[in-house]
Amino acid sequence: MKMDIRRMRADEAKDYWELRLEALQNNPEAFASSYEEAVERQNPLEGVATNLERAVTFGAYEGDRLIGVITFVRGSGLKTKHKGDLFAVYVTPDYRGKGVGKALLKEAIDHVKGLSELVKINISVASVNKTAKQLYHSFGFKTYAHEEKALYVNGEFLDEDHMVLFL
């Protein structure tokens, strides 16, 4: 498989939005927002385009097809610019287990390491998502907190693990 990882642009909002809706349907336990809320948004593509300009989102492509994403948001204030968060990590099911998530995470971490004064990256993951937790641990992330009943999905409470990588 030939895969290209690159920073996404605002004009790729439609690709991102379609993958996001897929993610919310396929893995509702992995995201704080819901598919139902997402499809009710007014002008979602405008919002996605704005977010793609503000945050750093890397996309994994096979040819023209977007197959995975990861977003990094840095703290914006004087007291929080030393840290950032990874969000919205997703790989479409047909490409899982093929190194796409690993490549996306590596690209995001390499980008972050080039930022001055950045000390740490945080990520939260559903406790039941053992594959994702294993991937994050392999890059040096450590669990620093376990939040019980963090999400309520399909009539069931899910716990989250909060993880950190010190640079």
Rank of each mutant, 00 (worst) to 15 (best):
W17A: 06
V89D: 01
F141S: 07
V128N: 08
A126H: 01
V73C: 11
V119K: 12
M1A: 05
G47T: 01
E18Q: 12
V100M: 08
T131K: 10
L118N: 02
E147W: 07
G84R: 12
L105A: 11
V48N: 05
Y35A: 04
G47H: 06
S127A: 15
V128R: 09
E62Q: 13
E117W: 03
V48H: 02
T131C: 01
V153S: 03
K106E: 15
S124D: 15
R7G: 01
A60Y: 00
W17D: 06
G47L: 07
A60R: 00
I70Y: 02
L19M: 14
M3K: 05
D11L: 02
N51A: 15
G68L: 00
K142N: 09
D15L: 14
T80A: 09
Q134G: 12
L19E: 00
K130I: 02
V100H: 11
E62C: 10
H162R: 08
W17S: 05
K149N: 13
H146K: 07
D4N: 15
D110A: 08
S138L: 10
H82K: 05
I109C: 03
G84Q: 14
V39K: 11
R7K: 14
R9N: 11
F139S: 06
S33Y: 01
V48C: 06
G101Q: 08
R9F: 02
K2S: 13
Y136L: 02
K14V: 15
A126C: 13
G140E: 12
Y95H: 14
L24D: 09
I123V: 13
A88I: 04
T80V: 07
K81Q: 13
I67C: 06
G97W: 05
L52V: 08
E29I: 12
V164P: 07
N26S: 04
E160Q: 13
G99T: 10
L135P: 13
S33N: 06
N43D: 15
R6L: 11
G68T: 00
R7V: 11
Y144A: 06
M3R: 08
Q42D: 07
K102S: 06
H137D: 06
G75D: 10
T71C: 03
G99I: 12
M8G: 06
R41N: 01
I123N: 03
V164R: 08
Y95S: 05
N122K: 10
S127Q: 09
E37R: 11
G97F: 01
V100Q: 05
F87M: 12
H162A: 10
R7E: 08
L151R: 15
F31P: 05
F87H: 14
K83V: 09
V69M: 15
L104A: 09
S138M: 07
D110W: 03
H111G: 09
L167H: 04
F141M: 11
T50L: 10
K81C: 14
D15H: 06
K79W: 04
A55Y: 15
E53D: 15
R7Q: 14
K2E: 14
E156R: 14
H111F: 15
S34D: 08
W17P: 03
L167W: 09
I67V: 15
S76A: 12
L78K: 10
N154I: 04
A55M: 10
T143L: 01
